[in-house]
Design a protein around this nucleic acid. Structure first.
Length: 573
DNA sequence: GCCGTTTTCGGCCCGACTGTTTTCAGTCG
């Protein structure tokens, strides 16, 4: 079992935590953190690079030393320094850092003064009340630690984007209703359209900062105010979502929006770029000495750093600044480019509406085509269609198409990929369809190699066209099953198959990283909603978010193509 | 520990808020 990038990144960041507690050179700590972030974002596996003899120290943030540590981790699965339970700084101290309000300095103090090495020790010290007496601590800090410790059990999961939107809307309306407010925008990973967000970063501009945060603190849906200053506030809503509010003057809107949109790495890269030009960048603007030279809009800010505007979805410091410099930024696919939906269910299986009703709704959206993809027989819980029912549906769609004006219904299915890689309906029936969407709904726990082979074997069938929700994950509910995505994508390319970007907000599968890999391999994708009712057709925009995060352009997406071109692309030769 | 249009040493992103202090360290984003 090879070590994946996330595991390496995790070991590096835990080691960075430990170094920080040891009061090591902060820049050495940062080097580990930078490398951890780089590695977890990097699309190619470190283990694979090593096996092909690549020099890892040529990668950014990785030097000779870290390259050899990566090698150690890949070969042994661990880093000896992190495993050792040294008396000076036991590795278990790292677990104390997840307690809000405890950073490396305080953890170090707790360890040196009270001999606390883990969470159980900390609980005992709290019961004795011995923490408040430490220098730099006090009654309030002790109480905060007690509360934060209680929180840890029910650790907050990241919030799906759609839930964040629902919580944000009334809050934005509330903030906008304040006459002092000029602009209100949500920044952070929400604006970068990550599939989940950790909290809501809300930016407000106002001529006078006075009382914007005070106004917010009167919002009815607040559970607790965590911090309240003139220009910043942090609070928890009753929905458990944490909100960070920042107030800046309008002249700083662009700089603040840029900074608070992040990503952290993108913002840092921007600041370094400013420094290289003898300038200073902070959330109030871009400055030459004390003189502001840009900051009211993001476009001006990028321009002042000799860059074109970079879309928020690209701001992960994964090559967008270099691409911008060379004027090679992608022209990102947009919702208006979408001509149809290639995955939806009707009331014939587990959907809510009829074929006719869905067709009407899609036509109203201006779609040129819509495909009908009810489940196949194996998925009994979803009333999957058997051979006969599907053939009946095919005939009724043919009839409906003769009547329909302005939209074409495509005959399809979401056919199950069985454990041996065969498809759940006879080829003779599948050949009657315009194309197929194929999916795994069983045997999620196969080892990676087996699961990958299962998909490739299914793709060997010439009736296979699009792999639906390639990882099968449900956000916060079901882990992805294990596949080697790159192998699956290369297999699809060789056979003339495609992958789906499932736009359902619970799935978002492929996500941005998966889309980026597809782009690098020049594999086209379908962005599809997996609608089970008419309203779900609106989920298309969430799929677009992920496609844009993966740098996809219009021509990379199947369902931006006119119907005839789509048919040609789907036809396997 | 990394890195280079101030290159092989000497830098390394920056500001707000809180609590504990009495001018600031620690934490956070």
């Amino acid at each position: 079992m090879s070590v994946n990038n996330n595991e390496i990144a995790d070991i590096f960041s835990r080691y960075a935590d430990l170094l920080e507690i040891e009061d090591a050179n902060p820049f050495r700590v940062r080097a580990y953190r930078n490398a951890a972030r780089f590695i977890s974002d990097y699309p190619k596996s470190m283990a694979a690079l090593l096996s092909t003899g690549e020099n890892l120290d040529e990668l950014p943030t990785i030097g000779k030393d870290l390259a050899s540590r990566i090698r150690t981790i890949v070969e042994t699965g661990t880093l000896p320094e992190l495993e050792s339970t040294r008396a000076k700084t036991p590795a278990t101290l790292v677990e104390l850092l997840q307690i809000e309000g405890l950073g490396p300095k305080r953890v170090r103090t707790l360890h040196c003064e009270l001999g606390i090495s883990n969470i159980d020790d900390l609980k005992r010290a709290l019961r004795r009340g011995s923490i408040r007496a430490l220098r730099g601590f006090g009654v309030k800090t002790e109480q905060r630690i007690r509360e934060a410790l209680a929180e840890i059990g029910g650790m907050q999961q990241r919030i799906p984007l759609i839930r964040a939107e629902a919580a944000a809307k009334p809050l934005l309306d509330y903030l906008a209703a304040n006459p002092a407010t000029q602009q209100v925008t949500i920044a952070g990973s929400y604006r970068r359209r990550r599939e989940t967000v950790g909290d809501l970063d809300i930016l407000v501009t106002a001529e006078s900062e006075k009382n914007i945060t005070g106004y917010l603190s009167a919002y009815e849906d607040i559970e607790e105010i965590l911090a309240l200053g003139q220009t910043r506030a942090r609070l928890r809503l009753r929905s458990r979502i944490i909100v960070d509010l920042r107030v800046v003057p309008p002249s700083s809107y662009g700089a603040a929006l840029n900074y608070f949109t992040g990503s952290r790495n993108h913002a840092i890269a921007m600041r370094k770029r400013a420094i290289a030009r003898g300038l200073k960048l902070n959330e109030y603007g871009l400055f030459k000495g004390d003189r502001p030279i840009a900051g009211d809009t993001e476009k001006d800010l990028y321009g002042a750093l000799s860059l074109p505007y970079i879309e928020p979805e690209l701001r992960e410091n994964t090559g967008e600044l270099e691409a911008a410099e060379q004027h090679k930024l992608p022209h990102l696919v947009a919702l208006k480019d979408i001509r149809g939906d290639l995955h939806c269910h009707t009331n014939a299986s587990d959907g809510h509406d009829s074929v006719q009703e869905l067709a009407n709704a899609a036509r109203k959206k201006g779609y040129e085509y819509l495909s009908i993809n009810d489940h196949s027989q194996r998925v009994t819980v979803a009333h999957g269609l058997d051979k006969k029912t599907l053939l009946d549906q095919i005939r009724s769609i043919d009839k409906l198409n003769e009547k329909l004006d302005g939209i074409t219904l495509l005959k399809s299915t979401e056919v199950d990929i069985l454990e041996d890689g065969s498809l759940d309906l006879p080829d003779a029936v599948l050949r009657e369809l315009d194309f197929t969407v194929c999916a795994i709904h069983s045997k999620f726990h196969l080892p990676e190699v087996k699961q990958t082979e299962r998909i490739l074997r299914a793709m060997d069938n010439r009736c296979f066209n699009i792999l639906a929700h390639p990882h099968g994950r449900l956000i916060n509910r079901r882990r992805p099953y294990l596949i080697n995505l790159e192998v699956v994508m290369r297999g699809a390319l060789e056979r003339g198959c495609y992958l789906e970007v499932n736009a359902h907000p619970e799935r978002l599968d492929l996500n941005g990283e998966g889309c980026r890999l597809a782009r690098d391999l020049r594999l086209k994708v379908a962005i599809s909603t997996d609608s089970h009712r008419i309203a779900d057709l609106e989920y298309m925009r969430f799929g677009l978010d992920q496609a844009r995060r993966g740098w996809l352009e219009k021509q990379d997406v199947l369902n931006t193509r006119p119907l005839e071109e789509l048919r040609q692309l789907l036809a396997r030769h």
